[in-house]
Design a protein around this nucleic acid. Structure first.
Lengths: 99, 99
DNA sequence: TCGATATTTAGCTAAATATCTAAATTAGAG
DNA sequence: CTCTAATTTAGATATTTAGCTAAATATCGA
């Protein structure tokens, strides 16, 4: 969960997730949306993979990244519920999800 | 919003917010919950203040910190809604809340 | 005013992070 | 087998961050 928040701390990575929300995309296609080099983007992907927020699938010479929405969901909802913020009822509605 | 996510990236700061969820607390009282020095905690408070996540009120020689839940709420819900995660219906349910 | 207490500021170090270019890797096309 | 394209790894640098100690600031009580 700490890795998830660390990953979300960077605007580039948050936007990568937003792009991936639409549909899976190759590393190159994702990179085209940002003004930084490919290696830099690759490093961002690594952080997102480390946080288990995205999944990589190699197809030919391309790597297709896909959002793992459930992981993002768990982290974010878990945290919001901690504060009694919105979200609330979903799945098993874990009440005592403290620390 | 970027400052909010940056602030949330650190576990100490997240826990400060959780402690503050219960009730306002002085800098010293908050510090007692962590194994780091007062100045270090003070720096964390500064980051949280910068993100507008907490509010400081001086009472005598103490500084009482208070959680600004609405700011946390806006950031978190705004982001979760971006992904169609849980939360959903709240306030005006801003659809095009991008970037 | 003096001394004690609470908090922040200054100044520093070590580690982490974001970025780059160049090189390595991998897979497909001819 | 060789060339090309896509991506990642290596290695370097600059910036940011989290932490510390010591000192400054502010307020209260005697």
């Amino acid at each position: 969960m700490n890795t998830v928040f660390k990953a979300l701390a960077d605007p580039t990575r948050r936007k990568v997730l937003e792009l991936l929300r639409q549909h899976p995309m190759s590393a190159g296609e994702l990179s085209d949306h940002f003004p930084v080099s490919r290696p830099t983007m690759s490093a961002h992907f690594a952080v997102l993979r480390e946080a288990d927020l995205i999944e990589a699938n190699k197809i030919g010479t391309s790597v297709i990244y896909q959002l793992k929405l459930s992981v993002l969901e768990d982290a974010l909802l878990g945290f919001t519920q901690l504060f009694g913020i919105g979200a609330g009822e979903r799945k098993e509605t874990r009440e005592g999800a403290d620390e």
